[in-house]
Design a protein around this nucleic acid. Structure first.
Lengths: 221, 221
DNA sequence: GCTGTTAAGTTAACACCGTTAACTCGAGGT
DNA sequence: ACCTCGAGTTAACGGTGTTAACTTAACAGC
């Protein structure tokens, strides 16, 4: 019972602090996340946090790290649902990337904040963040013959840029409720937009050569 | 002389405040930009700023707006250097996008900050931000036959995503100094990476059909 | 010339922020 | 019994955005 009364010891508090920080971040955004608000939620004074984290940045960094872990897990699951080496797996990775970001907006914004870049080097996120996953999916697709051969690192960044760019643009500019876009067919959300991109990614944007009949090239996989 | 002594009246102060804010933002980043630091630089008290701007957000919003104006001008210049309807113009637009961002990092980060999305709707930036420019360049390329026909809005967002994604990724993750990437050929900066993407954008990533000999498709434009 | 009015700016203050320093309290070991 | 040390407290400092109340100078009308 003594254990219950004095309650948390050591690592327990650390966990409680991180949980509180995560909760506040998700519900009130980064502006609501202060040492004092976290402390309130945990039920101790703000300065006590400094027993467990050097400063606010360190706390946030830990929260970010745990976010990357969840992110990576999410991506791994999505990839596992499609056969290795297929283009479908690559597409699923991209869609999962976007869906995770939309479902965990505050998280994602923090992870990829331009202001305080948290993955100081890509090193800090490679496997947890899913980058290694993407790279090997690309290599497998090339090996299986589904994708043309090219520098896999280059292709990985290329694909990553497409998903990431679409996502960040739609988050900052709200593509979907912009009249100028709407008069096109872009009432769609980012996920649908991403699906529409698939054709461009596969066949490119250059006009078919005038010699060859257009649209004759083959079936959809 | 009375004019000189009492100095600024009205709009002059407003301009001086924005200049100071711009200067501080570019040199010290967003953390250095406080009402008091701006006021110090202008030579008045922090609260005086409230005569001209409702609050800090309003001030920042104005600075952002002026940033978009410069951005748009930069893009317009870049586009004008290549013939209308050419794919070169589109590539130049993308490169200019990236170069501007690299040369005005603090600015760009603020413009496209995920945390406090400033272009609340894309409306606020369309022509100044260069979006209209991109869209018409796409339409012209389709009309000229250089690009295959498709929904121009969709293609515009696609291309925009590529440049924007590459840029934001390289800003947050520092792609260039990541060992895992370096072992590939990615020591290049974002501009070079973007150039390498050009081939993917044109011809796509799908493997050539096994039937047709690879690399037989035609000359480079 | 005196009197309002108004723009432009001041100082003082509030509540909040991250962070530091000094102190308290209680459990464990010797 | 004494000491140590982990876990937590309160008080305080300098910084932030912002508000309210006050000053000061220029200008208009009588």
């Amino acid at each position: 019972m003594a254990v219950d009364l004095t309650a948390r010891r050591g690592a327990d508090s650390e966990q409680a602090i991180m949980d509180a920080a995560r909760h506040i971040l998700a519900r009130e955004g980064p502006d609501g996340l202060s040492m004092r608000s976290v402390a309130d939620r945990v039920g101790m004074s703000a300065t006590a946090i400094y027993r467990y984290f050097e400063n606010k940045d360190a706390l946030v960094a830990r929260v970010v790290q745990s976010g990357f872990d969840r992110f990576g897990e999410y991506l791994r699951d999505a990839a596992a649902r499609h056969p290795s080496g297929s283009l479908d797996r690559l597409a699923a990775l991209g869609e999962a990337y976007i869906r995770f970001a939309l479902e965990n907006q505050e998280y994602f914004k923090l992870l990829f904040s331009l202001q305080h870049p948290h993955p100081h080097s890509i090193e800090e996120l490679p496997d947890s963040g899913g980058h290694g996953l993407l790279r090997s999916a690309v290599e497998e697709a090339m090996a299986s013959g589904a994708m043309r051969r090219a520098n896999p690192d280059l292709v990985a960044v290329y694909l990553w840029s497409i998903a990431h760019g679409l996502l960040t643009l739609s988050m900052t500019c709200r593509l979907e409720d912009c009249p100028e876009f709407r008069h096109g067919a872009l009432t769609k959300g980012p996920v649908e937009l991403f699906r529409s991109f698939r054709e461009f990614v596969r066949h490119g944007l250059q006009a078919s050569l005038p010699a060859t009949e257009e649209g004759s090239e083959g079936g959809d996989a």
